[in-house]
Nucleic acid binder design. Sequence first.
DNA 1: TGGCTATAGGTAGCCTGGCAACATGTATGG
DNA 2: CCATACATGTTGCCAGGCTACCTATAGCCA
Lengths: 106, 106
Amino acid sequence: MKADALRGHLDSLILAVVEKQPLHGYAIIEALSARSGGELDLPTGTIYPALRRLEKAGYLDSSWSEVGGRKRRTYELSSAGRNALAAHRQEWRTFAKVVSGVLGEA
Amino acid sequence: MKADALRGHLDSLILAVVEKQPLHGYAIIEALSARSGGELDLPTGTIYPALRRLEKAGYLDSSWSEVGGRKRRTYELSSAGRNALAAHRQEWRTFAKVVSGVLGEA
DNA sequence: TGGCTATAGGTAGCCTGGCAACATGTATGG
DNA sequence: CCATACATGTTGCCAGGCTACCTATAGCCA
């Protein structure tokens, strides 16, 4: 899958993956891989900046902890993030319908 | 719909729309609008450079004509373009499945 | 006559954001 | 002691969609 196709959809995926439980960056990468059947294998240079962007936008809150001698920064969905996720889901539905429609071959 | 979400998918849409009949740029914009139920209203600054890119890539062939005193540049799908379109359709299916899967709420 | 709209083509340059490459450090197992 | 997994980050490249602009013809209405 052309990784570049992610453009504009990554935020939704991240928000969705931390919806049920807060996760730290590394775990988010693994969760995305797992939830996509291995299709998504996102580099840290993609995820970490995205997380900071989402926190800055007010969609995620982060907190540090230490587990087994390793520092973790755990992100959880804010209420604004929850709203944003709902909006993104709606946008995705529209987008997917439009693209599938134009690609035709229905 | 966030226009920016198109990133990486526009080429597929253009190839799909000229699959059955060759069309000129302006008509492609209208066809995309029509086929998307008005959701897609792409500016010329998006379409024309994309068409040149696709022709340069060997996916489209173009020819000039004059209709009603107006110059038209008509694009048609090459055989390489046909293959590319098929590949894009497959990629889209995978991509859509992945995103829908991660967004969950199935 | 003048002006607006639709039709038709195009370019220059901005800006976003995913990615490659790099840097840092801990824990674990062979 | 070294490789690998775990864990976090930054810098800077670059593709590509968009804004804003430019040119030109045809047709209609006032």
